[in-house]
């Protein structure tokens, strides 16, 4: 009698995926907003890429990272929402009463959220290709963009799961997600750094890690393999993941403990 941690994680992840698929409204709005970035800004703003600072780059490739980060945040937010739902309807307690691995109980919804993120990112990239995306670094560049999306998503999943496990409250977890959305806009969202005029926005963009995520994605999409430009995104991810996953782990330990 009894399973390995892996078996438990597998069982609980499968069940999280099932419940996500049965609630299409948990992911469709976010997917639509992300696609909206691509369609609307590509259609409405692409003229500005004629400006010299864009150095002839195609606006679609410039705006794509915004769309991807938005999809990644939405997907990873599913991790926290899954956990909150389990806590609120008592299913979390039911799992705690079984011999299931405590790690699996927390990890299941997080893995499902990451999977959701992966599929949403693929869909967004697919749409971009349909709109005529060209990638400087080809297939390898797309893989790099996916990795960055997953890495940034993981950082956010850690954060959202941490908030969920700590507050055990759906509204609080939701509010926690909203904090992340302004980060998308307080950055080099629509125009390159050199074109930002407001001083305060320049400062915000400099301290906002999202900027480095955008920049490293844009580098491979538009300019090519420029090592240090790529690394800034990787470094931002490593730092963010370290912080949020520690936060999630500490919160998880508290939530499954019997204090």
């Amino acid at each position: 009698m009894g399973n390995s941690v892996w078996k438990d994680t597998w069982l609980i992840t499968l069940r999280s995926i099932k419940t996500t698929l049965r609630n299409p409204f948990s992911f469709i709005p976010n997917l639509m907003i992300s696609a909206f970035f691509l369609l609307v800004y590509e259609g409405g703003l692409s003229g500005i890429s004629q400006l010299p600072m864009f150095e002839g780059a195609n606006y679609l490739a410039f705006i794509l990272p915004v769309s991807i980060v938005s999809a990644a945040i939405g997907g990873a937010g599913g991790a926290g929402q899954g956990i909150v739902k389990d806590i609120e309807n008592g299913f979390f307690s039911r799992l705690l009463l079984t011999p299931a691995s405590r790690l699996a109980i927390v990890l299941g919804p997080i893995i499902a959220g990451m999977l959701q993120l992966f599929i949403q990112t693929l869909l967004i990239i697919g749409i971009a290709f349909l709109l005529g995306l060209e990638v400087e670094t080809g297939f390898g560049g797309i893989l790099f963009v996916l990795l960055i999306a997953i890495g940034w998503g993981l950082a956010f999943a850690g954060y959202s799961a941490g908030v969920a496990l700590r507050t055990k409250n759906a509204q609080a977890a939701q509010a926690g997600t909203f904090i992340f959305f302004p980060l998308i806009f307080l950055s080099t969202t629509f125009v390159p750094y050199e074109l930002i005029e407001a001083q305060w926005l320049k400062v915000a963009a400099t301290i906002n890690p999202t900027t480095y995520i955008f920049e490293s994605m844009r580098t491979v999409l538009i300019d090519g393999w420029i090592f240090w430009d790529l690394m800034q995104g990787v470094i931002a991810i490593v730092i963010a993941c370290t912080i949020t996953i520690t936060f999630a782990a500490v919160s998880a330990k508290k939530a499954v403990s019997r204090g």
């Binding site: 399973n3 438990d8 099932k18 609630n23 389990d86 309807n89 299913f91 039911r94 079984t98 011999p99």
Partner: peptide
């Protein structure tokens, strides 16, 4: 032990059969 808490703990998105099978799988 088998435990039924005061507040029932069920996942509303699963069917009754799926939930019992999941519980059984967790018990090995």
């Amino acid at each position: 032990i088998g435990v039924a808490l005061q507040e029932t703990g069920v996942d509303p998105d699963l069917t009754g059969r799926e939930l019992i099978e999941l519980q059984a799988n967790i018990f090995g």
